[in-house]
Amino acid sequence: ITFYEDRAFQGRSYETTTDCPNLQPYFSRCNSIRVESGCWMLYERPNYQGQQYLLRRGEYPDYQQWMGLSDSIRSC
Rank of each mutant, 00 (worst) to 15 (best):
D62M: 09
R29V: 10
S72I: 11
S37H: 05
N31V: 08
P61Q: 08
Y63V: 06
R45P: 00
W40A: 13
Y48D: 01
L69A: 11
E44Y: 04
D62S: 07
V35I: 00
E59F: 09
Y53C: 06
F27I: 05
I73N: 01
Y14W: 15
R45L: 05
C76M: 04
N47D: 09
M41I: 03
Q24V: 11
Y63H: 03
S75T: 01
G50R: 02
R56N: 13
T17N: 03
S75A: 08
Q49P: 01
Y53M: 11
R29F: 15
M41C: 09
R7N: 13
R7P: 15
L54C: 14
R34A: 12
C76P: 00
R57F: 13
C20N: 15
R45C: 05
E15G: 07
Y53S: 12
Q24W: 13
Y4P: 00
Q52W: 05
R74V: 15
Q64G: 08
Q24I: 08
S72C: 07
T17Y: 05
T18Y: 10
Y43P: 00
L69H: 08
R56S: 02
S70N: 10
D71K: 14
Q52P: 14
D71P: 05
L69C: 14
R56C: 14
Y14F: 15
C76H: 02
L42V: 10
Y48S: 03
T16S: 09
T2L: 04
Q10H: 15
T16E: 03
Q49E: 15
E44W: 02
S72A: 05
Q51V: 10
S37A: 03
D62K: 08
F27W: 04
T18K: 07
L55D: 01
S28A: 09
G38E: 10
Q24C: 05
Q51L: 12
R29M: 14
S75E: 01
N47M: 08
S72Q: 07
R7A: 09
Y43L: 00
N22K: 14
Q52F: 14
N47K: 12
I33W: 01
N22T: 14
V35F: 01
Y14H: 05
C39T: 10
C76I: 14
Y60M: 02
C20W: 06
L55Y: 09
I73T: 13
D6S: 07
R29H: 15
P61W: 11
Y4W: 06
M41W: 13
D6P: 01
R56V: 13
E59A: 07
Q51E: 10
Q64S: 04
F9A: 05
Y14C: 03
V35S: 02
D6H: 15
W40R: 00
R74N: 15
C20L: 08
D6L: 12
C39A: 08
L54P: 06
Y48N: 05
S72P: 09
N31S: 10
P21E: 07
Y63T: 06
L23M: 12
D71M: 05
R56K: 10
S72D: 03
Q10Y: 06
T17R: 13
R7I: 05
R7T: 03
A8E: 15
R29D: 03
F27N: 03
F3W: 01
E15A: 06
P61A: 11
L23E: 02
L55K: 01
Y48L: 04
D6V: 04
F9G: 05
S72F: 15
